[in-house]
Simulated assay, not measured.
Amino acid sequence: MDWKIELVPVPVSDVDAAKNFYVNQVGFADDFDQRVDENLRFVQLTPPGSACSVVIGEGTTDMLPGSQRIQIVVPSAADARQHLVDHGVETSEITPLDWGTFVYFSDPDGNQWSLQELPALPDQ
């Protein structure tokens, strides 16, 4: 039996500003934006190449804006950082650790993202 994570909520205070940030600056795909009723707006966004999406909106989570922390694996931390910088996103410097190379950034609400380049596997 497969168990697949396909949707993670990201709590935001301004849905339109967050959508603009994630789509136009970070580069997520704008998959779906629907107001279901006056209490529910569902906006699904997907990182490039990911099988898992995030949902922002109204009525999609009880978490406080800025309280989410998510990690994404990327092929190159340096390339991912450069993409973000080129699109006006403030990032950390590249941080090499034994378990990967990392870059960090936050959305306008303070939700924190870690981008991890996995370490090379030793020759076998």
Score class of each variant (00 low, 15 high):
residue 118 L to E: 13
residue 26 V to N: 02
residue 16 D to T: 02
residue 27 G to F: 07
residue 52 C to D: 00
residue 29 A to P: 02
residue 117 E to D: 04
residue 3 W to G: 05
residue 94 I to R: 12
residue 105 F to L: 03
residue 26 V to G: 04
residue 7 L to A: 01
residue 16 D to E: 13
residue 36 V to A: 08
residue 49 G to F: 09
residue 57 G to A: 09
residue 88 G to P: 07
residue 78 A to E: 15
residue 34 Q to G: 05
residue 3 W to C: 13
residue 44 Q to K: 12
residue 56 I to R: 07
residue 97 L to Q: 14
residue 2 D to T: 14
residue 36 V to N: 03
residue 107 D to I: 05
residue 22 Y to G: 04
residue 13 S to P: 10
residue 102 F to C: 06
residue 15 V to W: 03
residue 65 P to G: 12
residue 37 D to K: 04
residue 113 W to A: 05
residue 92 S to T: 14
residue 114 S to P: 03
residue 35 R to L: 13
residue 121 L to K: 14
residue 68 Q to V: 14
residue 13 S to F: 12
residue 108 P to F: 05
residue 88 G to S: 08
residue 26 V to Q: 01
residue 102 F to V: 05
residue 45 L to N: 02
residue 57 G to F: 01
residue 113 W to D: 00
residue 55 V to Y: 00
residue 44 Q to W: 01
residue 88 G to T: 07
residue 41 R to L: 14
residue 120 A to E: 15
residue 76 S to D: 13
residue 39 N to V: 13
residue 114 S to A: 15
residue 115 L to V: 02
residue 33 D to A: 12
residue 52 C to K: 00
residue 45 L to I: 04
residue 113 W to V: 12
residue 103 V to G: 03
residue 99 W to V: 10
residue 57 G to R: 04
residue 101 T to Y: 08
residue 66 G to V: 04
residue 121 L to A: 15
residue 91 T to V: 05
